[in-house]
């Protein structure tokens, strides 16, 4: 039972890493597709340099975004810790065979 759980956990972790790797890789490709042609365009375009920034210009806004991002990651980390506790709790109930007694979604019989 115990080794089963840890194997499952390892599988989930590996899968998560794989998925993230794939996503980031695909994203990198996408970025190249989106950016590079434009980059190569710029010198060719004789038109007066139009400034069309991709990133936030005001330093204040950029700062705010970084703060939000940090805040989001912090919340996610804490949330993951809580979710882990909750998952363990739910799994323990499941192992004890008690899951039918009131752990269902709201509105399910026995809730």
């Amino acid at each position: 039972m115990e080794s089963d759980v840890s194997r499952r956990r390892r599988a989930i972790a590996a899968a998560g890493l794989l998925l993230l790797g794939a996503l980031v890789a695909s994203g990198w490709l996408e970025a190249r597709v989106q950016e590079s042609p434009q980059a190569s365009l710029k010198p060719a375009a004789a038109a007066p340099e139009q400034d069309k920034p991709a990133a936030p210009r005001p330093a204040k806004e950029r700062m705010a975004v970084y703060v939000i991002l940090a805040w989001v990651w912090l919340s996610i980390a804490v949330l993951l810790a809580f979710l882990r506790l909750r998952v363990r709790e739910a799994d323990r109930v499941h192992r004890m065979g008690l899951h039918r007694a009131g752990d269902g979604p709201p509105g399910a019989p026995g809730h």
């Binding site: 939000i68 805040w71 989001v72 919340s75 996610i76 804490v78 949330l79 809580f82 979710l83 506790l85 909750r86 709790e89 739910a90 109930v93 008690l98 009131g102 752990d103």
Partner: peptide, 23 residues
């Protein structure tokens, strides 16, 4: 057992709200 679950549910809900409030 029940109260532990309720407690965790509350924690998770609260943090979800915190995360949401960032947006």
């Amino acid at each position: 057992l029940y109260s532990r679950r309720a407690f965790l549910n509350g924690l998770i809900g609260g943090w979800l709200a915190a995360l949401g409030s960032a947006f």
